[in-house]
Amino acid sequence: MPATPFNILAVAQSGRLQYEAILLAASLRDAAPGFPGKLIFAEPQPGPLWPNNPRIGETARALLTELGAEIRPFENKHFGHAYPYGNKIEGLAVLPEREPFLFLDTDTLILGDPMTLDIDFSRPSASLKREGTWPVEDIYWPGYNGVWGSLYKRFGLDFESSLDLSQPDEYWRRYLYFNAGFFYYEDPKIFHDLFLRYALSIRDDTPEELASQTLDPWLDQIALPLVIHALGGGRDGPHGQLDGTVTCHWRALPLAYAREADAVIDHLEEVAAPNRIKKVLKEYDPFKRLIFQGRGRKARALFDRDNLPRKEQKIRNLLKKEGYWLR
């Protein structure tokens, strides 16, 4: 387990994310009321890169504070509305330097005490709960080696040492690739500075090997493995606990009802049940229908958790067909 307390960071703003943030905060308070670190929500502020006000609403803000969270503002200087996933990069700036952090997406439920994590913050890692979404095979592309190799070369990193040699050549699992649903490190400033530098370089001066590839919405997940490799991390980490026994990245509430374990869904509904929490969550119509009006349980009945489709898209398609894709 960690030798010292660490901070948990997520990004929250108006709309869906503020309601997901409430579930995250309530689940942490329920599962680990004595957690010694801080739960911090980075909040983007109005400015040139946001056409609308992205700040958390007053009722959600009050509840998050009551649940023990801190809300810290940050200014978008590089991404904003055009690429909101960039908040994961720029939001790191709100964290105190040299204090270990664990970043979580707001659509994450805390199931157990984070202080039980077998985590080495000096060796960063990120979520392996992913599919081979990027790069995409194309008739004109240079292959996985060409795409990823060009990026490692761009930043002076050793490509060969990043490979999983147990996987076949030109198969996506051979290459370091993560979901950005969680990541961690011992110093947020170092991580932030490198993440930002790599992401901006890829966006603003894209290597020609990536000419046939789209960077939206994948830019953060393209830069992330490069950052982790540069800082001496990799695939090793508490992956059976994160995305496992301690946290669940449920991603979209209809997907959660379709595929997560009974204990996860029971816990989600339990932390949402207190009146002060329910009253605010019901402001968001998809949560109102799925959690409190029982539509989530009806969607759940469409699926056999022991025999789910291998591709997530098939789950999404059935949910949409039956009218349960509410977000």
Results as ranks from 00 to 15, higher is better:
171 Y>G: 00
227 V>A: 01
262 D>I: 10
302 L>D: 03
102 L>V: 15
191 F>A: 08
19 Y>P: 01
5 P>L: 03
45 Q>I: 14
4 T>H: 05
187 D>G: 04
255 L>S: 10
191 F>E: 04
32 A>G: 05
8 I>V: 12
218 W>M: 06
257 Y>W: 10
305 R>C: 08
26 A>V: 13
304 D>W: 03
89 I>E: 01
164 D>S: 13
87 N>F: 02
252 A>N: 09
12 A>F: 01
271 V>T: 10
182 F>I: 09
116 T>L: 05
202 I>Q: 00
116 T>V: 09
39 L>Q: 07
54 P>D: 07
170 E>T: 15
228 I>W: 00
92 L>Y: 02
288 K>Q: 14
108 T>D: 04
232 G>V: 12
198 Y>R: 07
59 T>K: 06
69 A>F: 02
274 P>L: 08
325 W>L: 04
115 M>I: 12
287 F>W: 12
128 L>I: 12
252 A>V: 08
27 S>P: 09
55 R>Q: 15
26 A>W: 00
250 W>T: 11
279 K>W: 04
271 V>H: 00
246 V>Q: 01
247 T>K: 04
123 R>I: 12
294 G>W: 11
215 L>A: 04
198 Y>A: 03
114 P>Y: 03
100 P>I: 10
113 D>G: 07
134 W>F: 06
319 L>P: 02
211 A>T: 13
287 F>I: 15
277 I>V: 15
55 R>K: 15
315 I>P: 00
128 L>D: 05
251 R>Q: 08
244 G>S: 14
257 Y>A: 08
8 I>H: 01
316 R>P: 01
97 E>L: 05
31 A>F: 04
233 G>L: 03
285 D>L: 07
247 T>A: 03
50 W>L: 12
124 P>S: 07
260 E>N: 09
79 F>Q: 01
275 N>R: 09
295 R>A: 07
42 A>T: 12
295 R>G: 01
278 K>Y: 05
31 A>H: 09
270 E>V: 11
20 E>H: 03
205 D>Y: 09
248 C>V: 11
45 Q>F: 11
155 F>E: 09
258 A>D: 09
220 D>G: 02
263 A>N: 08
243 D>P: 04
62 A>C: 15
167 Q>Y: 14
114 P>T: 13
72 R>E: 11
118 D>G: 12
28 L>I: 14
308 L>Y: 14
199 A>T: 15
141 W>G: 05
143 G>C: 11
95 L>Q: 07
93 A>N: 13
315 I>N: 00
185 Y>M: 06
228 I>S: 02
156 G>D: 10
318 L>H: 05
13 Q>G: 11
126 A>L: 06
181 G>C: 03
224 L>D: 00
159 F>W: 11
71 I>W: 03
109 L>H: 07
245 T>A: 10
89 I>S: 00
279 K>V: 07
273 A>V: 14
272 A>Q: 03
327 R>T: 10
37 G>L: 06
262 D>M: 08
81 H>A: 12
250 W>A: 03
238 P>C: 11
23 L>I: 13
5 P>D: 04
205 D>P: 07
102 L>C: 12
52 N>S: 14
14 S>L: 04
63 L>E: 03
75 E>L: 10
92 L>Q: 07
227 V>W: 00
157 L>A: 08
93 A>F: 03
106 T>P: 01
312 E>K: 13
251 R>V: 05
184 Y>W: 15
126 A>F: 04
320 K>A: 13
268 L>D: 08
43 E>F: 01
220 D>I: 14
129 K>C: 06
141 W>I: 05
61 R>L: 06
